[in-house]
Design a protein around this nucleic acid. Sequence first.
DNA 1: TTGAAAGCGCTACCAG
DNA 2: CTGGTAGCGCTTTCAA
Lengths: 333, 333
Amino acid sequence: MRDVATMAGVGIATVSRVVNGKPVTPDLAERVKRAAELLGYRQDLTASSLRRADRRTHTLGLVLEDAANPFSAALHRAVEDAAAEHGMLLLAGSTDEDPVRERGLLKTFAARRVDGLIVVPTGQNDTDLDAARRAGTPVVCMDRRTTAPQVDAVTVDNRAGVQAAVKRLHAAGHRRIAFLGDLRTIWTAEERYAGFVKGLAEAGCVLHRSLVRRDLHGVEAAQEATRELLALAHAPTAFISGQNLLTVGARMALQELRLQHRVALIGFDDLPLAGLLEPGISVIAQDHAAIGREAAGLLFDRLDGERGPARHRVLPTRYLARGSGEIPAAEDR
Amino acid sequence: MRDVATMAGVGIATVSRVVNGKPVTPDLAERVKRAAELLGYRQDLTASSLRRADRRTHTLGLVLEDAANPFSAALHRAVEDAAAEHGMLLLAGSTDEDPVRERGLLKTFAARRVDGLIVVPTGQNDTDLDAARRAGTPVVCMDRRTTAPQVDAVTVDNRAGVQAAVKRLHAAGHRRIAFLGDLRTIWTAEERYAGFVKGLAEAGCVLHRSLVRRDLHGVEAAQEATRELLALAHAPTAFISGQNLLTVGARMALQELRLQHRVALIGFDDLPLAGLLEPGISVIAQDHAAIGREAAGLLFDRLDGERGPARHRVLPTRYLARGSGEIPAAEDR
DNA sequence: TTGAAAGCGCTACCAG
DNA sequence: CTGGTAGCGCTTTCAA
């Protein structure tokens, strides 16, 4: 920049003004631009934000469960688009539900002075989230809640979604409904299970503890659990799966045993291609784009100075009937 | 940091040494740490990299086609893991195949002084990639090649993959094979088409221009094209689809017409759940993790000082027979 | 081993 | 409107 100033025969401050589009005599501006071009000048945003009064880096930190999971990917893209509208870029990282990794990400994001954080929290690090916020970095939780104060969250109505699904299954005659749940440390896993319990209770249906399998993580765990449940003397006639990979595992087990047309299955969160299966997988779908957009919105509020207590936006789920959730209970069994 | 120094009664340089783990008398180090703790000191990596001799930001720029696409997501995660091993973080953005967006991303990544770039290039910005490299930022292309010099690339053997698929279909009696291709600006789309042409030629099979549909982008375009092809007087008995979303669209059209068991389909790139469909979708699969890992490896080489000409790593594809590619040609038609 | 001081590239302030 | 100058938080000489 100094070189550009020298070459253009102007002060260094003028170059800065030109680069930042502040009012400068056209003649000078032209000279500066030419010099910048000739010298191959490249603006340095890191130095700029260091000196700038607001110290903004125009960077957001995004903490996901696993960037490779289609669910996380959809959130990522939604946040990216919202961020781009505000001229912000995303630093992203995956936790794999490991609080140590989460902590590491939060720390390095903080050290890089991100303007804000959007986090899918593991649920075992609430103090770190609070610490980040106290240090001046607004934090918004996405997909899950947290207990940290002044940390906003946007989630879907997990309980209501599962509850409605249970009612449907009950109405179709199912009395032995199994539940597959993700790690109990995950907020949504607990919420969805709560919805399951509530749904059964409202339907006046018995909750068979032997048909509940929680703390399952990943396709294979669900597949194995489903196999085991189906081998039971009084096997379930329907399954509710609390996460997308678990749904895949459950369906794989069902197809292994050629039971996909006889045993009902409703999954939480949609899957690509779910509609092309025979029968299609019925799901409790969430609007990923809306979740990400809303989370970004809450964050930008905070960046604009909002100082109130934690806000919690709850988005509705939508049931997509594709067949697997519409299988009636077999007469006997 | 100055405050910490004052409080600990040491020089500011000593605090820097402690923070960076350089040798300091244990007694002093202890005092510094305590002061830092008390004052809630948080390291500022942006300022640090500004002053540091190597000027490294420990940040990589990742330019994807669409962060929400499972393919991009898998690459993202693979690169993230490799980056994390080297203590690097990822700035990521999507181009949607728009060279203007790509250019914008490259520019802002450069302004943020990323240490290196891993790019899935739109193919319409090769000069910008070269410009980045000339400015001192090593660039590696992932999934696609580029003509820019000294820009490494890691791709799969697209031609060989499609070629082998064509041969399989031909051996199964297919003589009217359709091809669905993505935007022709995309390098892989052209390569895959080249493989299609070569495969037909080697099999001594006629290339029916009317069965080739290129420049398709997204599920719906492929669905519509597939419908049209199937409505032809001499409809194809088999389809090869050159991209994952196109495969989905093709399969949707096939199922609409209940032809999924009669018309063969082979897709390029695997899809989640593809194995659960009836029939399963046979695909030419690529190892996303390997692609990402390899790309990161090439980049770290460059960061370690490698100055040679562009290197191009070609990874093999693997054919996954799941049924849809094993459907023989109907006797008549 | 330590501390003082210079300065990374930039913006903010102030005097002209 | 413009240029000089101070200084963002840090690392790196360099001398003690």
